[in-house]
Design a protein around this nucleic acid. Structure first.
Lengths: 192, 192
DNA sequence: CCCTCCCCTTAATCTACCTTAAGCGTATTT
DNA sequence: AAATACGCTTAAGGTAGATTAAGGGGAGGG
């Protein structure tokens, strides 16, 4: 299972045998049940999480109790609350498993160890964060400039593998609309 | 003027004399006029930009020709199109000066040189990107969960120094609403 | 295997926000 | 100093999307 973690780095700067060993000694493998939380509001986010199997949602809850999905993460994705992780501040988000999952987690201490001892890790984790930033800026743009229908079509295009695995209520929350309205959007699209 | 660049790093890991010298030799100082572009759509973003004086907007233009502001950057802020910069892809955004400005720019090559030769730069630029990510995720959350009035109030709170310097049309574009509706929001707030 | 809790959908009413159009004041340019 | 462009506002009418309420189907957990 840890091979999935290793091969994730092949997308960036691949790891050699020694680096894989170093990494393997610094991550913890965990099995997570459906609906289990790996981060709750007000807790400090103490790990970078790599998803080897399963699917998570990262979301915030407003004063009315409504959830707002900020990110989905499935196999091969990284997941963290970056502000909480680096500054050890209480998290404002929850991270919850949507499916049974297997993850690898690395602590801040161990991550810094990797950064300090090998520039390749440094570069790799930089690119991981940069990719998240690109994705997130795209979302801001879509949110301020596109209709719900356009955003739904963009979601389908960008995350086809998630479409069949997520209930529409979760997708609606991600798109920033109500499940009822997503239902209407989907119906209107079928007519076309 | 370059002292503003140096002292920006005091927010993270401060630079010593040798590091300042190294950095100074690798940045270019430029004076930018009002309405001048430092990045246009389809050009590759070749620099990280530090704003020492003045103010910029980073925006995207949709098919109807409408501008959508993704970021404002004033004194002490960093500015780049990260996807274009690292992957040398054509930019989808414009960066334009709203006021006459003085900036320092560093090329990818020189930035990598700093990364490779001193972990402190590495760490500093990582934090700069991480902070952008935190800010951008906040914006996504606001966009999908708050009303225009709430977003306007949050903007005032987060960027009070920008409020008096930006025309309301630009703020409206940042908030994802029309100038006419922002005008109404402001009127309604005054009544309260 | 049953029960309960999700999840999806439809439809009516309501509201936040957009569009268009027009008028006015103040910078910027010539 | 005139000309022009730009920014702010108001208001009427229109649309995207929220809210509320209700019913039916399917899956997970006991």
């Amino acid at each position: 299972m840890i091979d999935k973690l290793f091969s994730n780095f092949d997308n960036y700067l691949p790891l050699d045998a020694a680096e894989r060993e170093d990494l393997a000694g610094r991550v913890i493998e965990r099995k997570i049940k459906r609906r289990q939380f790996i981060l709750q509001e007000n807790d400090v986010c103490r790990h970078y999480t790599f998803v080897a199997e399963g699917c998570f949602k990262k979301f915030q809850v407003d004063d009315k109790g409504t959830e707002h999905n900020l990110q989905f993460a499935a196999e091969g994705d990284w997941l963290m609350e970056i502000g909480s992780f680096y500054f050890e501040k209480p998290s404002r988000v929850y991270i919850e498993a949507i499916e049974p999952a297997v993850i690898f987690q690395i602590s801040r201490q161990n991550l810094y160890h990797l950064y300090d001892n090998n520039p390749k890790f440094d570069r790799n984790f930089r690119v991981i964060v940069e990719n998240r930033l690109v994705e997130t800026e795209n979302r801001v743009l879509q949110a301020i400039s596109s209709t719900a229908e356009e955003r739904y079509l963009a979601f389908i295009k960008q995350y086809p593998h998630l479409l069949s695995r997520l209930p529409n209520t979760q997708i609606a929350s991600y798109l920033g609309i109500t499940p009822e309205f997503l239902s209407k959007v989907r119906k209107d699209l079928l007519k076309k």
